[in-house]
């Protein structure tokens, strides 16, 4: 840190702390996917296709998550249905 650095603005977070925040988020996301069974993405797609036969939804409106607790696994399915006209 030299004398000239004192004139620079201090408000921005350092790039290293931005890097750390980004890494923590992506690494946590990738770790949670690591323990998923291989069939999950395909099952997710097929569930979306079934729902779409009846209701028009975007694939983003369907959230599928598999949670493992000690002795059981819970498949959680969240579908955001479009508003009725």
């Amino acid at each position: 840190m030299g004398i000239f650095d004192y004139f620079k603005s201090k408000s921005e977070p350092s790039s290293a702390s931005v890097a750390k925040d980004r890494l923590q988020i992506i690494v946590a996301h990738e770790r949670s996917r690591r323990h998923q069974p291989d069939y999950l993405p395909q099952m997710q797609q097929e569930i979306i296709d079934v729902i779409r036969k009846y209701v028009q939804v975007d694939s983003d409106d369907v959230q599928i998550q598999l949670d493992n607790t000690d002795d059981c696994s819970v498949l959680e399915l969240n579908v955001t249905l479009p508003e009725k006209n």
Partner: peptide
């Protein structure tokens, strides 16, 4: 560069 906030520190990488 770590002390200038431009590089992840040992502690940062260990924590992640």
């Amino acid at each position: 560069r770590v002390s200038d906030g431009e590089m992840l520190s040992v502690e940062d990488v260990e924590e992640i």
